[in-house]
Design a protein around this nucleic acid. Sequence first.
DNA 1: CCAAAAGTGTTAAAGCTACACCCATGG
DNA 2: CCATGGGTGTAGCTTTAACACTTTTGG
Lengths: 218, 218
Amino acid sequence: MPPPATPEPIPSVASIVVILAVTDGHLQVLLVHRTDEPEQGKWALPGGRWDGSESLDAAATRKLVEETGITDLYLEQLFTISGLDPARPSVAVAYFALVEASKVRLREEEAWHPGWLPVDALPPLAFDNNTVIEQAAARVGAKLDYTNIAYGLLPEQFTLRELQAVYEAILRRPLDRRNFRKRMLSAGIIEATLEHRRAGAHRPAQLFRFVSREPVIL
Amino acid sequence: MPPPATPEPIPSVASIVVILAVTDGHLQVLLVHRTDEPEQGKWALPGGRWDGSESLDAAATRKLVEETGITDLYLEQLFTISGLDPARPSVAVAYFALVEASKVRLREEEAWHPGWLPVDALPPLAFDNNTVIEQAAARVGAKLDYTNIAYGLLPEQFTLRELQAVYEAILRRPLDRRNFRKRMLSAGIIEATLEHRRAGAHRPAQLFRFVSREPVIL
DNA sequence: CCAAAAGTGTTAAAGCTACACCCATGG
DNA sequence: CCATGGGTGTAGCTTTAACACTTTTGG
């Protein structure tokens, strides 16, 4: 029996990842150039077709490792949108990830030429990727308060000043050093190490670590 | 040319809806009996295959109207999961909705015999629907504090006691009447009407309404 | 006049915000 | 000794939690 003349449209499922990091005081997002139509050549979020051979979460994790080489990461599902591709039924499952910028090795040799762009000064992106990124940034800001997700953005050990810089980059407002220290310590998400970092003509800064580097809600 | 022997697996996209209401002091969820394999005959969340002819949000809204007859509702996307159906690649986009129990007209004549079941005493459901419902209930509880989503659960006018009963059902703990009244009024999400409701041998209760019945984050 | 639910105000504790001075180091 | 950033405490304010008596009505 031949297939019907107009087969039921096959929905396409894609996963896309908003990869965020903080460098030089600004929240940055990893974007790539689209190599295919539609919107060829524009900046877009990395992602790809889902083939069902792994879970959606696994697909997003794999995408992230491919783009950045990073394995110690925070990854969370954002939402799912339909209709990105006007040509056919499609859904895209969006994730966001927080990574430590210094650990990332971008794959420059690839055709899509990845790059970091500051979240608060993005050019128009392919599809509605701008709003996806905005929502990811908003979610990160909201969770910063009552979770330890910042661990994804920082190395094993860090100074309080570095931690504060990350918070300020995401929240986009300055914080009081003394109150910040008190809140972080009393919340119990970080703890002091015995080490200090000497850096310039001033008192050395104590190094801290996250009590847990697993996702935790306080 | 014949189709290839093993065609690329076609992912199936479904939307499912966690429909919540409060009756007699308990949070209840609308469930239906599955009419098909797998898991035939078990209680499950209402939902269905997405054919791409409308947006995912529209599909969820339509499902909800079909099940309950309700149009004034609060609907929000929860998350997307893959692998519910072990037989083939599948994703399910889960939504949750808050409805006013008294307005719902269940479609008893349907084969799947819908019914309300209390969220805190559910039997094992098809697939992992139990955890989906738990997450929906947790999300509602978290948003209750800083949004007006409770409007979906109550009629146009209501007494403070009725509002408090809804909060207590969702939060699963008793609240202080005086503090509750103060918080609700000072948060500005409800306002007094000029009407009162006489109900029994006691002082009549003032009726209130939500300042806005659109979803609002405070 | 009695029972039943509605309405109301105060006080103590905790948490948050704002703010200024001393400390350790390198040059 | 000086410039630089690191480290610390307190006072006022706001927010939250606990708590008991009076009011209005129907029977």
